[in-house]
Design a protein around this nucleic acid. Structure first.
Lengths: 128, 128
DNA sequence: CGGCATCCCCCAGGATACTG
DNA sequence: CAGTATCCTGGGGGATGCCG
């Protein structure tokens, strides 16, 4: 007799625990380059170089690395067109799109609180 | 003649630009420790040590540093009770709460796609 | 064009310790 | 208990170069 859906050990799904799988995944995704790339890759399909120019300031190396991780986690699809010069296209998978929704909110949040934060900083810095 | 609300230079609000204010703020917030701390500080008010134990794996130094940044940006309020031993309490401001909403979604996303991602990784790793 | 490897530097971030 | 400072190491991340 087996449990059909072997329910995951709750310890794995707890972002709070330093050694949980959830934490591992969360930490892997929670960094600026990953989130920015996901944000740029909206509904669109983009080539490597397009991505590179759209994500301001990202280096060739970091973009490659970020994309490999995203591909490995199944958040982006990578399509290689067998032509010369090579044409490689990236687009979000369904899982990637889902994450993108949250990233979008984060970007909106940034815009919404820009002034607020800038003001808070001035206040904080100008007292002592 | 002045414009009443000096509309912000669009360049400042574009997360995409490497040198925009939006990017600066986004990048400052888009890292695991900051997001985890914000997530833990839900509606609750927590003391330093409580936070320390609730955010598994964070070092004393990183927690201090993260909290200072959040305080500076006006995302958390810091209350010092003049007693000995000191009692310092942290809670999210309205801006912090707003950000927390997006962080929560990100945590939920992590749980939702745990298996999905784990499977994708196995597939990716096991070919070549 | 896109991937991968190499070199290298700088700083994120941990460990430790002293103050109020 | 909380904050600050110092020390020190690993690895994040840039620059460059060479292949397919």
């Amino acid at each position: 007799m087996v449990t059909k859906e072997p329910v995951r050990n709750p310890a794995d799904t707890d972002v709070t625990r330093a050694d949980s799988l959830a934490r591992e995944i969360f930490a892997g995704v929670a960094n600026k380059w990953t989130l920015l790339v996901i944000n740029i890759l909206g509904e669109r399909t983009l080539r490597f170089t397009e991505l590179r120019t759209e994500v301001g300031g990202i280096s060739h190396k970091m973009l490659t690395q970020t994309l490999r991780n995203l591909e490995r986690d199944g958040l982006v699809d990578r399509t290689v067109h067998p032509v010369v010069p090579p044409r490689v296209e990236y687009r979000l998978t369904e899982a990637g799109q889902a994450l993108r929704n949250t990233v979008n909110r984060m970007c909106e949040w940034t815009r919404t609180y820009l002034d607020h934060i800038e003001a808070a900083r001035r206040r904080f810095d100008s007292r002592l």
